[in-house]
Design a protein around this nucleic acid. Structure first.
Lengths: 206, 206
DNA sequence: CCTTCAGGTTAACGACCGCTAACCTCCCTG
DNA sequence: CAGGGAGGTTAGCGGTCGTTAACCTGAAGG
């Protein structure tokens, strides 16, 4: 894993602050002057880095969806490679499912503003960008559905897809946990979410 | 139960359409002219019924929160009255929890736009309205937490609160189930969500 | 040393939006 | 039948917002 030690570029800085502001007050609720102020430059200076306000949102959403999908594919491939000796497909699927859940939880806990934007501001995109994001999201969902149905063969495809969407709703609830009296540490929260997700899937699978 | 057969008033009509539009494109993304057009009158005509755009959102959010809380209190009281003979508190708590889940699912399935607004546009309210909504939400959560801890005594209060928020995230995922390939009927969806919620709680409770 | 260019600045334009003002038109009622 | 209020209409004001234009500056490169 290539951990970055260099300073974030101005572009990345802008994207980070824009994501935070969009998540807090909504896309239309944030002005470009505010975004500029958040990174120390003023309003129209942003246009040296982005074509417009829409372009920032597009890059954020495409980036999120792509990152989620790429991570999931990697986890799937890792598990395949690791267990190429053992013939027990069911047990391998269980491991993959746990890995997918863990990855999604990491994302939901570390990038709450992005997780918020992800299912809130999709309709503010240009048609082409929105189609791109939707396609990435669909691939991500279908990857989960495949793994879930391997672990719970009794589950039909529509039910599995509904179950996956619902578990996403469960995992993406992390922004609501912030306000007042959450669990002590990040680890405990992650573990609780993981157990609940597995419990929900188990209950869905007959 | 007093089922209404009379036609909805203009006010209610406006609130319904406003809720739908706000949920689709966000509070700031909808103009008053659009809301007016959706009910057949034009722009400023709305001001005969509401003090302003903010007032519509406020009435919607306060109404939702109040309705959820009132329904939950009623279900709690009903269960207390119904089981005043049997001394088995644990079994009664189970029944109450099932009833709470059922009520929340009904709401999430029947009023998807409202459920969407409920956790998306809260920050667009005036301070006093926002405090009111937050208080109602908090009471609703605490009512759930009490019941959940009765069913799963091993669960600490912070964990129970987190679990409740997460299950809300699961149940409120219904807007995402609409797009393409959902389950056949409303009943099947409700049943699946119910099972998953119970499974999630069970997995949370050690 | 001159040029170039990345990355800023402020001023200002045009569009849009929430809201008010002024006016109109039924319908109900004494 | 007078009149008054409920519920509309259109015109327009004031403010905000995204975007562009024009200009400035400091550092790199030949």
């Amino acid at each position: 894993m290539a951990t970055r030690t260099d300073a974030p570029t101005r572009r990345e800085q802008i994207l980070r602050e824009a994501a935070r502001l969009f998540a807090e007050r909504g896309f239309h609720g944030v002005g470009v002057d505010e975004i500029g102020a958040a990174v120390g430059i003023s309003g129209p200076g942003l246009y040296r880095h982005f074509a417009g306000k829409d372009a920032m949102l597009a890059e954020l959403l495409v980036g999120i969806s792509g990152q989620l999908l790429t991570g999931a594919k990697r986890r799937l491939a890792d598990a395949e490679a690791e267990a190429d000796g053992g013939a027990d497909g069911g047990a391998r699927a269980e491991v993959v499912l746990d890995s997918l859940i863990e990855g999604h939880i990491d994302f939901a806990l570390d990038d709450r503003p992005l997780i918020t934007l992800h299912d809130r501001e999709l309709d503010r995109l240009r048609d082409s960008d929105r189609k791109m994001v939707r396609q990435l999201q669909r691939q991500y969902v279908e990857l989960w559905v495949g793994v879930v149905r391997e672990v719970y063969p009794g589950l039909g495809e529509p039910a599995a897809r509904s179950a996956v969407h619902s578990v996403f709703g469960l995992l993406n609830s992390t922004p609501h946990l912030g306000r007042g009296g959450a669990l002590p540490g990040r680890g405990a929260t992650a573990e609780l979410l993981h157990r609940m997700a597995r419990g929900a899937f188990a209950a869905a699978g007959v």
